[in-house]
């Protein structure tokens, strides 16, 4: 069970229709790679977030398959074209089966 996992997402509050906006996401997670060893020389088991998705009103924006080479506190920045007002849904899938989500509203004029 991963502790202190906190997603943070930055989305502009409003946009004009068809505008391309930048979204930045960060989630605090240790992303244990499965390569490191503890003081006794035992391998620390892998524990990472293995997938991240972003959808807008149910339609896919980006889907990232993640491997242990993604840094601690995974950060993603990408662009989205917003056709209408709606809700962004961000989902992170942990190795241990946990799912972390965050949602953001955007008003399109």
């Amino acid at each position: 069970m991963a502790e202190n996992v906190k997603p943070r997402v930055r989305v502009p509050r409003d946009a004009t229709a068809g505008e391309t906006i930048i979204i930045k996401t960060l989630i605090s997670h240790k992303m244990e790679s499965g390569q490191r060893k503890d003081d006794d020389g035992n391998v620390i088991p892998r524990s990472i977030i293995n997938r991240f998705t972003c959808t807008f009103n149910g339609e896919s924006v980006i889907d990232v398959a993640m491997e242990p080479a993604i840094s601690t506190n995974p950060y993603f920045e990408f662009e989205v074209t917003v056709p209408e007002s709606g809700t962004f849904e961000f989902t992170w899938y942990d190795d241990d089966g946990d799912i972390y989500t965050d949602t953001k509203e955007i008003a399109v004029s």
Binding site: F56, E59, I62
Partner: peptide, 9 residues
Amino acid sequence: FTFGALAGS
């Protein structure tokens, strides 16, 4: 990274 229909770039 797999891009969906709404990806701005």
